[in-house]
């Protein structure tokens, strides 16, 4: 399916057609947020523990200390949520009729954009492994390039088999001249 969008990455050609914009499956975000949720549970557990084992902490002068610590803790929980979501949101892969673009946010200030021309594709593999992956239909797509060690990876993306097929179809649609540029395609 063709997606008509404005400029999405540096170096995008004017007449370049975008076929896929994908990021990790939402289940990946949910899994990360479950870890984050544990920290919220700690907050409730601490309230319960204070009520049960240290009721004096609910009275002056300790109450203000407890409230202060709880508020600071909440601020950092919120910050953790923001960072988790931002890291999820900023990682994405784009497939056009000319190349694959992998936009990776390794940390908040470490942003990388890798590109792979479709003519360099050697082999495409879709992998769905695990209960959640099968149930929610997400997994990895590996794109083997002409260079022996270089492998593009779509990490836990939705519909990996569909992406696999689109990549192969786009490769097949390339003019023979471009395919022959790849020294490994003989």
């Amino acid at each position: 399916m063709l997606i008509n969008k404005k400029i999405l990455f540096p170096g995008q050609q004017e007449n370049e057609q975008i076929f896929i914009i994908t990021r990790q499956h939402w289940m990946v975000l949910v899994t990360k947020l479950l870890v984050w949720f544990l920290f919220i549970i700690i907050l409730f557990l601490s309230d319960w523990a204070i009520n049960r084992y240290a009721p004096t902490l609910k009275k002056d002068p300790y109450l203000d200390y407890v409230n202060l610590i709880k508020t600071i803790y909440l601020l950092f929980i919120l910050l953790g949520f923001l960072i988790t979501w931002v890291m999820y949101y900023l990682n994405m892969q784009i497939v056009t009729n000319e190349r694959i673009v992998d936009i990776t946010q390794k940390s908040l200030l470490h942003h990388t954009i890798s590109e792979l021309h479709l003519s360099r594709i050697e082999d495409v593999t879709a992998e769905v492994n695990g209960i959640l992956e099968n149930f929610f239909d997400y997994g990895n797509v590996y794109v083997q390039t002409a260079a022996e060690t270089n492998r593009f990876e779509f990490d836990r993306v939705p519909n990996p088999t569909k992406i696999n097929k689109i990549l192969l179809d786009l490769y097949e649609a390339l003019p023979e001249k471009q395919k022959q540029k790849n020294p490994f395609n003989k």
Binding site: L8, L68, I72, L75, F76, L79, L82, I83, V86, Y89, L90, M92, I103, Q105, L108, L109, H111
Partner: peptide
């Protein structure tokens, strides 16, 4: 307290900067 808040504000600003700078 204010040192912790300074760290918090710094990290928050970096996260928001990354979101505004690289977000689609």
């Amino acid at each position: 307290f204010y040192l912790i808040m300074a760290g918090f504000v710094l990290y928050s600003l970096i996260a928001l900067y990354a979101l505004l700078r690289y977000g689609r």
